[in-house]
């Protein structure tokens, strides 16, 4: 339960960073923290107490508790997607820096929703 709570706190830290910070790189870091928290949460969902790696071989015993492999597959996919989105965000901040000479959102903000 403590582990779950810590993951939630990590997620909340990321969300707080995204929604309050005014520096582009810090916003991106907030998103990355949220992603990491999500990946940890998925791994926790699949974790079993004293579980072993879910590989069935000829002489593996059926009695051993195995961890759930599906969340691990999901995390791999989520990491790849996270890599793509982070790379794209960083590429955009490089472009924005070239246009404005700053990464501070307060100085950039032309658009107001």
């Amino acid at each position: 339960m403590t582990l779950y709570l810590l993951t939630f706190i990590l997620f909340a830290v990321g969300l707080y960073g995204v929604w309050t910070k005014r520096h582009l790189i810090r916003i991106i870091l907030g998103l990355v923290i949220m992603e990491t928290a999500m990946n940890l949460f998925l791994i926790l969902v699949g974790y079993r107490e004293d579980g072993v790696a879910p590989i069935i071989t000829e002489n593996s015993s059926n009695t051993a508790v195995m961890v759930d492999p599906i969340p691990q597959a999901l995390v791999l996919t989520a990491i790849v997607i996270g890599l793509a989105t982070t790379a794209l965000l960083l590429a955009f901040s490089v472009r924005i820096y070239a246009k404005y000479q700053t990464l501070d959102l307060n100085k950039i903000r032309n658009l107001r929703g």
């Binding site: 916003i27 965000l89 658009l111």
Partner: peptide, 24 residues
Amino acid sequence: GAEELEASFKYQVLGGSASMLILF
């Protein structure tokens, strides 16, 4: 352009947070 990049950055940050909530 500058405006496009800024709008897209905003879109990406909010879209990225949305994706994380959905994954959660």
